[in-house]
């Protein structure tokens, strides 16, 4: 579904990604971990070209997104949901409008269809009673569940999560992870950058360790946590587990 070839990204002289190759298949749940500054968020943001790679290609459903026009890119992004660390809900719109804005303005759904879809998703994430509230009235955990629902409205083929629980108070992490787990069980293809090792162990089909701009090691959670090979990963795991 997503094929990454020789992906490099530099900000000025600072090379953050120094050659990433991987294939993410339909239905996979890839959890990306690594020390801060390792390039894992940049990697994720290159997948939907929020960052433009310096070199290499990202092929999504047969299309190289590093070489498409702005217009084609936007069509592709409709199929790639993204959830941010800081939610980025639209504060001037009600929760329901947060969900319906994109499908309605992109003329993918009528207002009625979008409202119906939004209500279904709000029920799914357990926040139907907040439909007419504004984002500022919600807790962090609720905001992130809404952000997930907002991405799901578009019926994406893949969901990208950029440290979705890192900005949350500890007691709210659980509700967001539970929702992500539910999505995973429903078969959603997911790429998740996170520090939640429990989630990685439980939900991932593959865990990827990015360090100094390359994939230093990857494998099933059993291999990854059970018998890490590289000294860097052993060191990292000893610090976080």
């Amino acid at each position: 579904m997503i094929e990454v070839k020789g992906l490099k990204k530099a900000f000025g002289k600072n090379e953050v990604l120094s050659g990433i190759d991987t294939v993410i298949n339909k239905g996979e749940k890839v959890v990306v971990i690594g020390p801060s500054g390792s390039g894992k968020s940049t990697f994720l943001r290159c997948l939907n070209r929020l960052e433009t790679p310096t070199e290499g290609s990202v092929i999504f459903e047969g299309v190289d997104i590093t070489h498409v026009s702005e217009k084609e890119l936007n069509k592709i992004r409709e199929k790639m949901g993204m959830v941010f660390q800081h939610f980025y809900l639209f504060p001037h719109l009600t929760i329901r409008k947060n969900l319906t804005l994109a499908p309605v303005k992109l003329k993918l759904m009528t207002k009625e269809e979008a409202d119906k879809r939004a209500d279904e998703l709000l029920k799914k994430v357990g926040l139907f009673d907040k439909a007419d509230s504004y984002p500022d009235m919600l807790s962090g955990g609720q905001k992130q569940r809404i952000a997930i629902a907002r991405a799901l409205v578009m019926r994406p083929d893949v969901m990208l999560f950029d440290e979705p629980t890192s900005a949350l108070d500890p007691e709210m992490v659980g509700e967001v992870l539970a929702l992500m787990k539910q999505l995973a069980e429903e078969g959603m293809t997911m790429v998740v950058v996170t520090h939640e090792m429990g989630f990685a162990r439980e939900v991932a089909s593959r865990v990827m360790f990015i360090d100094e701009g390359v994939i230093a090691e990857e494998g099933t959670p059993e291999e990854f946590f059970g018998s890490p090979k590289s000294p860097r990963l052993k060191e990292f795991l000893s610090k976080v587990l």
């Binding site: 939907n48 929020l50 702005e70 217009k71 936007n74 069509k75 592709i76 992004r77 409709e78 790639m80 949901g81 993204m82 941010f84 800081h86 980025y88 809900l89 639209f90 804005l101 994109a102 303005k105 992109l106 907002r150 991405a151 578009m154």
Partner: peptide, 17 residues
């Protein structure tokens, strides 16, 4: 916040929308 542009872009909205 720059994130508002990114949230819009991630949903497939172009710059002017």
């Amino acid at each position: 916040d720059k994130g508002q542009y990114e949230a819009g872009a991630s949903l497939g909205l172009n710059y002017s929308k």
